[in-house]
Design a protein around this nucleic acid. Structure first.
Length: 303
DNA sequence: ATCCAGGTATGCA
DNA sequence: TGCATACCTGGA
């Protein structure tokens, strides 16, 4: 019997419902959003990765693309239906006009970017709490996405609040500040353990750290983040892009570095020069462009 | 086995 | 500033 049947019949779940009228995504793009390295609290329920199981605002939710329409259902005992729907609209940024944000991309004179954009229609930057994003990208250095996911899963399970059916939230920074590095090391975090606890302790001793961070303009927020141990330029850019909604952030990871230098003929150029090129060529919403490039490169290089 | 992975911190020219 | 190296861990 198809997997979907048993899911439909299990108790406690609401019925599958569209998140919003005009919100459609192919299964591939939905997969890229939930599994591609922006967020780490969603897991595929089936081999084909068409149904997703996750946690959003501590609500247990499932997602799928049904003939293009993004549908959700929620475990009713843990939440109200409309609460989940509005959390999802927020998460997918349905309040923003993606087309308009991308209207300044130099698509007419950039075949490469056009290819990236066309390959993942509707791809966007998810909106996640900045506290959570900081934790995820503090784990990210020198790791594959699936390894990051495993680390975070262990951290949540060991230190985070239990929600339902073995699902745990991430621990708060206040909680992490009290964790011993040796304890955290049991989550395979390696040398990142001291970064996480060290950052947690600084955050814990500065009241409203994240509130202040969110009020700062991009460059100042970036400097504030880089003061934390384990946060360099790349992690700071990720935190501000995925958690702070700063589309000026353009994280230069190894993939993007390779892609930009090769695709735009900038081999041998310094990192500074590449940054300057990206700023001028891609414009203020370059962070969104980065997401398309990242997705495209991962797909063509087959991982 | 040896290398590398969504980098950062440190030391030295 | 700009480059070299070490760093936990685990999978290829």
């Amino acid at each position: 019997m198809p997997f979907e049947e048993s899911v439909m019949e299990s108790e406690g779940w609401s019925s599958w419902t569209e998140i919003a009228d005009s919100f459609s995504l192919t299964p591939r793009v939905l997969e890229e959003l939930l599994w591609g390295g922006q967020t780490f609290q969603w897991f595929p329920l089936d081999e084909k990765r068409e149904v997703w199981d996750g946690l959003l605002n501590s609500l247990r939710i499932q997602l799928r693309s049904n003939a293009g329409n993004v549908e959700f259902r929620v475990l009713l005992k843990t939440s109200e239906f409309e609460e989940a729907r509005s959390a999802l609209k927020h998460f997918f940024r349905l309040d923003e006009n993606l087309e308009e944000l991308m209207s300044f991309f130099p698509l007419a004179k950039d075949d490469y970017l056009s290819k990236c954009v066309n390959a993942f229609p509707g791809l966007r930057i998810l909106r996640q709490p900045i506290e959570k994003v900081l934790l995820t990208f503090l784990c990210s250095s020198n790791k594959h996405i699936d390894q990051i996911r495993k680390m975070l899963g262990m951290i949540a399970h060991r230190f985070g609040e239990a929600i339902t059916d073995g699902w745990h939230e991430y621990p708060t920074w206040q909680e992490l500040a009290k964790v011993a590095v040796e304890e955290l090391s049991k989550c395979s975090v390696g040398y990142r353990g001291k970064y996480i606890v060290g950052s947690a302790q600084r955050i814990a001793q500065e009241p409203e750290f994240f509130e202040k961070l969110e009020r700062l303009p991009f460059e100042e927020a970036k400097m504030k983040l880089i003061e934390l141990p384990g946060v360099g330029e790349k992690v700071a850019d990720c935190v501000l892009l995925y958690g702070g909604g700063h589309y000026e952030a353009f994280p230069f990871d190894t993939w993007i570095l390779k892609a930009v230098s090769q695709r735009y003929g900038l081999e041998g150029k310094s990192r500074k020069e590449m940054q300057r090129f990206v700023e001028e060529h891609l414009g203020d919403n370059r962070g969104i462009a980065q997401q398309y490039i990242f997705a495209y490169e991962r797909e063509v290089r087959e991982l």
